[in-house]
Amino acid sequence: MDLFSRSWTALLEAVAAVPDADFEQPSGCAGWLVRDLVCHLVIDAQDVLITLVTPAGTEPTVDAAGYWKLVEPPTGEDPLDALVPRLAAAYGEPELLKFHLDDVGSAAGRAAGLADPAARVGTRGEVLTVGDYLSAYVLECTLHHLDLIAHLPAAAEPPAETLAAARAALETIAGSPFPFSFSDRDALLVGTGRRSPTDEERTALGELAARLPLVLG
């Protein structure tokens, strides 16, 4: 729960600090500008709010790692992926997009802080505890924080502890640790295909290299 709060708060603060002109810069999500990514974060915040008020009366079907599924790389044909850039452009001024994320995002953060970690909620056809759901979202927050700052060298990095937690989550999903020579940031970027490994890194990855990237959905 604390790690979710740290990662989510850091992400919202990083977005708030992005100069308006940089909303037209590319993000770490292929094909999306920073403004498109921020619009996606509004949808993420809505998802958090919806999930936290969707109680489930059955036993959990997944834990934090099981929440994520390995999927095929996006083709650009998904209707929601196509909708996000159009929706982001409709905001016009970055200030309006920032305001909406701060409004909905802050509400999601407060709701998470008030939630019972042992309560069970339903989302994406699965049931899991609130604690596991928010733990799973640390990976989402941290990856998108890295996406946000991919081409913004002056922007704040994700907190070290959430980078470490996100790496541990990705290693659980992969069923294998990343080499110790990889920083947490590099493990996340290379592991999810946001950056191609160097020849040296590919050698260090060994058999794991053949299973990368891990595209999460």
Rank of each mutant, 00 (worst) to 15 (best):
I149R: 15
A210Q: 14
E161H: 04
L11E: 08
T123A: 13
E72A: 15
P74W: 08
R167Y: 00
A165E: 05
L80G: 03
L49E: 13
A168C: 00
D147M: 08
G76S: 08
P179K: 09
A82K: 14
V84A: 06
A88M: 04
L52E: 03
A155V: 15
L114R: 15
Y137D: 06
R35L: 11
R202F: 03
G217H: 09
W8C: 01
L163F: 04
L83S: 11
W68D: 03
L146K: 04
L148W: 07
P197D: 13
A107Y: 02
D103E: 11
P213Q: 08
E171N: 03
L128S: 05
V130H: 01
L33H: 10
F180L: 06
L214Q: 12
A64W: 00
V215T: 15
A82H: 01
L208C: 09
P26I: 14
L152V: 13
T162N: 04
R120E: 03
L37G: 02
A10K: 00
E93M: 12
E72T: 14
E200V: 14
A21R: 11
G193S: 07
L139G: 01
E161T: 08
D47M: 09
L97E: 05
L37N: 02
A210G: 08
R6W: 08
P117N: 07
P55E: 13
G57C: 09
D2P: 08
V138A: 06
V53D: 15
W68L: 07
E59C: 04
